[in-house]
């Protein structure tokens, strides 16, 4: 599949931006600057970016607890994201969502989700909206290999199939549901083959190869836009960090990690575009530098932003509700 040069630049910039964001979040978290906890996406960049390369702001995605990469690939503002992780009033969710619920509906990003398997029914709803109103919008549902075992995922795949909804299910198989290997928790030889149960195409993709993801997602999304119904993509990749920051990752061996780092998605992209003369080393380096600057600015913005005033706890629960009943006897 021929990818326009501008799109290639975008793909590289987004992948590098996700990596830099996550590496910096890991540092800030280790320094004790972030409340709560975080699940990082580094290593899986090719999936979010290869898929979202086919989407516009009018298309929707649902995400997972590991959602920063999906946000960035969907175009959510990185400064507002960083501020959200710092719990600041300038955060994209005004400091009310945090890492696990980070969202920006204006960008079609329907939320990271603290509930494994929470997103698939919601993606069906976005698809149902498009079908009901006769638009060409699509909804992409990112889910992990852990969510592949949730009932909601299976119910949603069936619903999307019988209603021929414009939904693409992208299962990011990063090999471990928390610490449990997918080969233990999944009865099937692969997750993609489960698509057969719902009479939809199921495609196994190398999730460290952004070109492979781009091509498979392009077909699935085009199919959805044509009104031909859902597809299940299983993209295999590897998360460089643990399940969450603080996870000692005792369930993986150093050899396994080293083998996967040989297949780093960003490195692979660089090698491909350089060897084929699609982009130059100078332009890639310039993108790297711009990204580093953008991340530094984002952290500066987050650190210098104010915390939300405490009484903001009471806003945004409802569109309309008596405020004294929200405060109760506070």
């Amino acid at each position: 599949m021929e990818i326009p040069r501008e799109k290639l630049r975008w793909i590289y910039e987004r992948m590098v931006l996700i990596r830099a964001f996550e590496d910096r979040v890991a540092q800030e978290f280790a320094a004790g600057k972030l409340p709560g906890f975080v699940h990082l996406y580094a290593g899986e960049e090719a999936i979010a970016v290869g898929v979202c390369a086919h989407l516009t702001d009018r298309d929707y995605i649902t995400s997972t607890h590991r959602g920063h990469g999906h946000c960035i690939a969907k175009g959510v503002d990185v400064k507002a994201m960083m501020a959200e992780l710092f719990g600041k009033a300038t955060g994209v969710c005004k400091g009310k969502g945090g890492s696990m619920h980070i969202a920006d509906v204006d960008k079609g990003m329907l939320g990271a989700n603290g509930i494994v398997g929470g997103g698939p029914p919601i993606a069906c709803g976005a698809g149902l909206m498009a079908k009901t109103l006769g638009t060409d919008q699509v909804a992409v549902c990112f889910l992990g290999d852990g969510a592949a075992e949730q009932g909601t995922t299976h119910e949603a795949m069936n619903l999307a199939a019988i209603w021929k909804l414009p939904v693409v299910f992208v299962c990011e198989n990063n090999l471990y549901a928390e610490s449990t290997p997918w080969t233990y928790h999944c009865a099937a030889p692969d997750i993609a083959s489960r698509a057969a149960a719902y009479d939809m195409p199921g495609v196994l993709v190398d999730g460290t190869d952004v070109f492979a993801v781009y091509e498979a997602a392009g077909e699935a999304i085009a199919r959805a836009r044509r009104g031909e119904g859902p597809t299940l993509l299983e993209c295999r990749a590897f998360r460089y960090y643990g399940h969450f920051q603080g996870d000692a990752v005792s369930y993986r061996t150093p050899e396994e990690e080293a083998a996967y780092r040989q297949r780093d998605p960003i490195q692979r992209f660089r090698e491909t575009v350089l060897s084929q003369g699609l982009l130059s080393e100078d332009e890639l380096d310039a993108i790297d530098a711009a990204v580093q600057h953008e991340i530094s600015e984002a952290v500066r913005f987050a650190e210098s932003s104010p915390l939300p005033p405490p009484e903001d706890c009471l806003t945004d629960v409802y569109v309309s509700y008596p405020v004294e009943q929200l405060a109760f006897r506070h």
Binding site: Y60, G118, P121, G125, A130, T132, L159
Partner: peptide, 9 residues
Amino acid sequence: GAAVGAAVT
């Protein structure tokens, strides 16, 4: 859940 997603969109 689809009703939730449809409502949000």
